[in-house]
Amino acid sequence: MQYQLVYRDETETLSTKTTIWTAGRANNPLIESLTQIEDESKDEHGSFLVTPTLQLVDFPEVFAAGDCATVKDHSLPPVSQIAYQQGKGIADNLIALSKNKEPHSVDANMRRTLIKLGLNDAVAKLFDKMLIQGRPGNLIRNQTYLNMLPIPMHNFKASSEWLTDEIFNRYHHSSK
């Protein structure tokens, strides 16, 4: 299989039977600039260690989640579905604290695996049983993320951008 990738004025042709995707991970510079938090209170990636309630170990008045935080003794993958669940848990804990109640442990778990592999290409593993690939997998992935957006305007903006990319072939990607 050959893929022709066009980005701006550069064209590159790749011959492959396997597509490999990799990504790095780096903390936001704001996180890096918080020097009040000791290295012992961070994991090997520099993310904050938090309690099961998602409060910083040394600063319990501060909550952190997503890829800038690691639950102490319970590492979770730094993916959006975990961060989304943790965000809801933090909101619930802030409400509890405002009512003079104790914050509760935030239990986040992987619901499904959705991996974007390129334009119109993705893999969706549903219920740890069913694997859907290619364009159908991409549609499932896109619909899942649209359903997770917080307000209809975000949903509209994301849908508009995806539709514009599709109609006007903004990223000239073709397989030969």
Rank of each mutant, 00 (worst) to 15 (best):
A83G: 15
A122C: 04
V57N: 06
N100A: 09
V106C: 11
S105E: 15
G134L: 03
A91I: 07
V62T: 10
G118W: 04
N120E: 09
Q85I: 06
L54E: 05
Q85G: 05
L56Y: 08
V71L: 02
I90P: 03
E102P: 01
I115W: 00
F59Y: 15
V106S: 06
V62L: 12
D121V: 02
I82D: 02
K125P: 00
G134M: 01
P103G: 09
D128Q: 08
N120C: 01
L94C: 10
R112N: 12
Q86F: 12
N120H: 05
V57F: 01
F59P: 00
D92K: 11
I132F: 03
P136T: 10
P78R: 08
K116L: 07
T53G: 09
S98R: 03
Q86P: 06
V123W: 01
K101R: 13
Y84L: 13
D73G: 05
K99L: 12
A108T: 04
Q86R: 11
L117S: 05
G118L: 05
L76A: 09
A122R: 02
Q55W: 05
S75T: 09
P77R: 07
P103K: 07
Q81E: 14
G89P: 06
K125E: 13
L131I: 14
P60I: 04
T113D: 00
H104Q: 15
G118S: 03
S98I: 00
M130G: 00
S75E: 12
G89Q: 08
K99Q: 15
R135H: 01
Q81G: 09
G66E: 12
V62P: 01
Q55L: 06
D73C: 01
Y84N: 12
L94P: 04
D128H: 08
T70M: 13
D67P: 10
D92G: 03
P77C: 14
K125R: 11
K116F: 04
V57D: 05
A124V: 06
E102F: 09
E102V: 08
T53D: 12
G137R: 01
D121Q: 14
R111P: 01
